[in-house]
C-alpha cells in the first residue's frame, strides 16, 4: 500500500522550456522539449493523471521532434477549478498552449479521454493539426465493456466490487481504493507494478472532487463524435490494446473507421500501451511522423 506520494524520480530529459499559460482564469502548466523538427503535442487525458504519463515518450521523441505537453486542468501543476471540465475546455486549453508556445501546427497524440479534445481540434482547427494519433481512445463510439455496464456512477451502490468502484460515492469514501482498482484495470499485463504505482501516485495528486466534476461535465455523445470524425481530414493512427479493460477495443476500431485512419491493435496490451510497451509505441509514433514527412 502506498502511504505517501513518492518524490519525482530522475527524468531522462528535462524540458527546454516550461511555464504557465492562463485561460479564462485557469493556469495551465506546459513543457516544451527539443526545438528541432515538427511539433508533437502530447495531450492531457482524464485529470486523474498528469503529463508525466508521457515520460517514456518524451526523451525519444524530443530527439527527433519538438515535443509539447501540458497538465490538464485539475491535474499536475495546473489549476484545479471546481468546475469547467467540459471537453471543449480542454480543447481550448490545448489551443492556448499551442499559441503560448508559438506552435502553428502539430501532430496530436492523445490517450483515452484525450481523444475527445483531439477530435475537436482536428475537426475544428484543421490548419493546426498535421495528424492525430489516438491511443486507447475513449470516445462514445463502439461498445462499452460488459464489465462496466451494470453500475450507475451517480447512485449509492450496495457493493464495492469491480467496476462498482467507478462511482462518485465510492470515490469520496475510498479514493485510493478506486485508484488502485482503476489502474490495475489499466494495466492487465503481468509485471506492471511500477506502471500501476506511478499512476496511483499521480492520481493521489488530485482529488475525488475534481474527478467528480470531470464526470458530471462530460458532454460527448455518439452523434457528436461521429460528426467530428466526419470532419477530420488529417492522417489518423489509432493504437488500441486488444485487452483494454477500460475502453473497449471496439471503440478504437470504430474511431479508425470513422476517421478513415489506420488501426494498430496490440495483442495482449491494456489501456496504457505507451507506458507498458513504450518501445513499440515510440516506434509507431516515429513511423507515423515519418510518413507525414516528419524529420
Amino acid at each position: 500500500m502506498l502511504t505517501a506520494i513518492p518524490r519525482e524520480q530522475t527524468r531522462a530529459r528535462r524540458p527546454d522550456q516550461s511555464g504557465h499559460v492562463e485561460r479564462d482564469g485557469v493556469q495551465l502548466f506546459y513543457e516544451v522539449y527539443g526545438s528541432e523538427g515538427p511539433a508533437v503535442f502530447l495531450l492531457p487525458t482524464w485529470s486523474i493523471i498528469h503529463s508525466r504519463h508521457w515520460k517514456l515518450q518524451i526523451p525519444y521523441l524530443a530527439r527527433h521532434f519538438r515535443v509539447l505537453t501540458f497538465d490538464g486542468r485539475g491535474s499536475g501543476r495546473s489549476d484545479r477549478p471546481a468546475s469547467g471540465y467540459y471537453e471543449r475546455e480542454f480543447a481550448a486549453d490545448a489551443l492556448a498552449v499551442m499559441d503560448a508556445t508559438s506552435t502553428d501546427i502539430a501532430v496530436l497524440v492523445s490517450l483515452s479521454l484525450g481523444a475527445r479534445w483531439a477530435l475537436m481540434l482536428a475537426a475544428d482547427h484543421p490548419e493546426r493539426v498535421a495528424g492525430a494519433v489516438f491511443i486507447a481512445p475513449s470516445a462514445p463510439l463502439g461498445k462499452t465493456l460488459a464489465s462496466q455496464q451494470p453500475y450507475l456512477w451517480d447512485r449509492e451502490l450496495r457493493t464495492d466490487k469491480g467496476w462498482a468502484r467507478y462511482n462518485r460515492y465510492y470515490w469520496l469514501r475510498d479514493y485510493q481504493g478506486f485508484l488502485e482498482f482503476f489502474f490495475a484495470q489499466m494495466f492487465p499485463e503481468p509485471h506492471s507494478t511500477k506502471q500501476i504505482e506511478d499512476c496511483v501516485g499521480w492520481g493521489l495528486e488530485t482529488t475525488p472532487e475534481i474527478l467528480i466534476a470531470t464526470e458530471i461535465e462530460k458532454e460527448f455523445d455518439e452523434q457528436a463524435t461521429r460528426g467530428l470524425c466526419m470532419r477530420v481530414r488529417c492522417p489518423v493512427l489509432v493504437i488500441h490494446g486488444a485487452d483494454d479493460l477500460i475502453s473497449s477495443p471496439s471503440r478504437g476500431i470504430a474511431l479508425a473507421e470513422a476517421t478513415r485512419g489506420e488501426l494498430v491493435l496490440l495483442e495482449g496490451s491494456g489501456h496504457g500501451p505507451h507506458v507498458r510497451d513504450p518501445v513499440k509505441v515510440n516506434l509507431l509514433l516515429r513511423d507515423f511522423m515519418g510518413r507525414l514527412g516528419g524529420k
Binding site: 531522462a12 518501445v279 515510440n282
Partner: peptide
C-alpha cells in the same frame, strides 16, 4: 525508478 532513462537509452541504442 530509472524506467524512463532506461527506455530513453534503449531508443538511442535502437
Amino acid at each position: 525508478r530509472m524506467d524512463e532513462i532506461l527506455c530513453a537509452n534503449f531508443m538511442v541504442f535502437h
